[in-house]
Every structure is written in structure tokens, then in C-alpha cells.
Write a protein that binds this DNA or RNA. Sequence first.
DNA 1: GGCTGAGCTGAGAGTTTGCTGAGGGTGACG
DNA 2: CGTCACCCTCAGCAAACTCTCAGCTCAGCC
Lengths: 230, 230
Amino acid sequence: MRSPEARLLIVDDEPNIRELLSASLRYAGFEVLAAADGQEAVQVAERVRPDLVVLDVMLPDLDGFTVAEQLRASGRRLPVVFLTARDGVDDKVAGLGLGDDYVTKPFSLEEVLARIRAVLRRTRGDLESPTRLQVADLMLDEEAHEVWRDGRIVRLSPTEFKLLHYFMTNSGRVLSKTQILDHVWNYDFGGDAGVVESYVSYLRRKIDNVEPRLIHTLRGVGYVLRAPRR
Amino acid sequence: MRSPEARLLIVDDEPNIRELLSASLRYAGFEVLAAADGQEAVQVAERVRPDLVVLDVMLPDLDGFTVAEQLRASGRRLPVVFLTARDGVDDKVAGLGLGDDYVTKPFSLEEVLARIRAVLRRTRGDLESPTRLQVADLMLDEEAHEVWRDGRIVRLSPTEFKLLHYFMTNSGRVLSKTQILDHVWNYDFGGDAGVVESYVSYLRRKIDNVEPRLIHTLRGVGYVLRAPRR
DNA sequence: GGCTGAGCTGAGAGTTTGCTGAGGGTGACG
DNA sequence: CGTCACCCTCAGCAAACTCTCAGCTCAGCC
């Protein structure tokens, strides 16, 4: 097993969100620390020197941007991914340094993961990291945001793209509908798992209408994306 | 991973600007060092021997021109790109050495990048480096500041030109509206991403009204400039 | 072979996103 | 002082997208 990808500090006052993020980012291979408010964040960051901070803009004690400022007071370069309400988007333009990024609440885990990875890539000046995923003759290019199947390019809607991306980063692994819902849809999505069926259906029509079939249904369990055996 | 294009030293006392420049120049493939004032700049430059210095004229301790003088005290030729307030333009003409250049604050990242590249090209006497960008039958000549499409020359406003330039240096890569805003517009622009839509619309009318279409909208994601596939 | 329930998919309502024409403000220039 | 190019905003329209639902299919089980 390789060492953690990077050390993250999560700052959010809502325990639910904090837990959600901590757990799934840890699962994604990051080393994760958490803080519930700005003061704690600054203290923790001083001790542990994270590589990146995920920071709620709305905190009980300090404004998120103020926290970011204090975090960087030492002159240290420290990228931040802000979590902001959908309508507070204007604030962001002011406080956002480049190299930072933001995600609007409510977010999906895939979204947050993507942003974190993008920011880390950017700050490291890491231009050549692979941006393509491939399973059999199905290829997804993150940079170009393109999907190819059977030599043909395929147009996908945002949700379809996110779903396929999730499948491809977990190819060969069975994913339950709940799991998919938790990762691809916003955390406050109230509907049922029926949507997943719909979108799998859309995906099949667009990228899995030729042999060999790659998306397989496991009745009562979930779905799996995999190339045929042998 | 290829070696950095060049080693830059950024000198600015405002942490936000310093961060902004550091992060994006690093992402653009430069090796970047930063200093917050004139003294530090001179010290760092002595140690690391940068290829170019990006230097704020307004520093807390020393005048930018003085710093430049000291940087070159060793007799070493060291090109400088000055950052200057819009109204301080007169000062600069005086202090500008040959091979230097300047950008007025507030700047856009594209502007700074363009100046840095131009200065480096000049200092290196690098005549070969491409001054033309081409995608299909769309051609942009940086030197002549001209754009051609379908054999015809096209007149673009300054913003249109910068936007197209950004598209062309990133052809095949999806650019979000936010990303575009961050690179093409001045860093203090407070408005929303609606402008980008407007300017894409202008560009389309001027350079993309013939087949094949080169600017593509990816709904919910951004735009991409690319030649048609096959 | 028939029953049952999970999964599939076409249709459609409601929402979001992007495009573009119109227009006001600003600064350069004569 | 008037004109012009340019920049930005806004609002109405069009298209794309998301999600729900209901009827259908089919695998698994008796």
C-alpha cells in the first residue's frame, strides 16, 4: 500500500458534513484531520501542516476567508477548497486566490474529490499526471471531458459523466445503488435510488450498446463496470 | 515530467497577489520563488539566480527600480517585468531597462504570462519560438496581433483577443467559465461569469461562423476549443 | 409454469443553463 | 463636445437536463 496522497484539513461546524467528508476522503486515500471552527483550524494547521484545507465559508466564529488569511499568515503557500452556499457565490470572487477553488453546497462527494485533486495537481505544478481512464475500448478523458466508446466519441450530460466517472474509477468493484447515490448525487438529495436506474439506462444506451457489454447488473446488489473475463 | 521553462522570482508585498501569481505561474510550468519586499528579493536572487523577476514597483521598503538596480549590481543581465499602478505609468518609462517590460495593476493572468514569455523570448534571442498558434484553419499571430480564419483576417477587440488566445493555448482542454474569468479578466473584476458567455458569443460571430465549428459548449461544464474529430 | 419483485425504459413536467439582442456607461480621440 | 469602440448587464427565449412515474420485462423461486 502506498503512503497517503496528501494531508487534508477539513473545517466545518456541521458534524454531519465533517464526518461525511472525513470518512470518504480518508477512504479515498488521504490523511484527514478535522476542525469545527476557525480558531481550532488555525491551531491544528500550525501543528500538522496540511497540504490542503477544505474550508466552509460559513463558520460560527470567523469568516472562512479570514481563516484562510490566518492560515497563510506564515507566508506559507496553502491551497484552500472553499465550501460555499450556492447564493454566496459573489463573496468568493473577492476572497479567492488562484490556486484555490470552491464547491457549492450541497455538493456531491465526487465533486469535492475532483476539486481537491485538481487543486493539488495545480499547486504541485504537476502537468503530466494522467487524465485518462480506460476499460476495454471505453475511454474517459478528464481534461478534455470526452468519452469514447468503440472508436466513437459520445456526448454525455453532466450527471451521466459523473456517474460514468465513478464507475470507471471503481471498475471491477460492485457498487450498490445507495453507494452510487451517496457519491454522485448531492448529499441532500431526497429522492430514491430510482434515479440511478434511470441514469444507468441512459449510460447504457449511449456507451454500452455494443459488444462487449461493460455495465453489468447484479440483481439485489448493485452494478459493476468491467471488461469481460479472459 | 519535463523541466521547468525558466526560474522566476515574484516580488510583491500583498500576499494575495503573490499567491495568485505564484500558483498560476507554477501551473504554467515555471519554477517559482517569491519574496515580500526588496531586501528579501535581493537576498533570494543572489542565492537562486532567477532567469526573470516579476517586481512590484510599490514595495514597503525599497522602490522597485532601486531593487532592480541592486539585482543587476553584479553586472548580470536580469530581465524584469514590473507591476505598476495604472497611474504610475510615467515613472516606469524612466526606469525601464532594455529588455524589461511592465504590466499595470490590476492585471489579468494572461497579460502577465504573455509579457513574461515575450521578455524571455527576447532575452534568449530565441527566434524560433512559435509566435503563432493554430487550430484547424484558425490562426493567431501573437507578434503581429492578428487573427485569421478561413483565409480571412478578423478584427478583434482587446478582450476578444485575450479570450481567444487563452482558448488557443488550451485547445482540447475544457475551460470552465470561472477558470476563464480568472485568467482573462483582471483579478479585481467583481462581476459574474455572464460576461464570458457574452464574449464567447462575440467570438463565435467573428471567428466561428463557418464550418467546422471550433468553439464547443459543454453544458454545465464550460467551453472547449478544438478541431473536429476526423 | 406461474408468481413476485427488482430492474428497465419511454414519456413528460419542471427546472436549469446558455445564447443573444438591446442598451447604458465609459473613456479615447478628434 | 460629439462620436465611436468597447465593456458589461440584463432579460426573454430556446434547448438541454434532471427527476418522477407507470407500465413492462425478466430472473429467481416455488
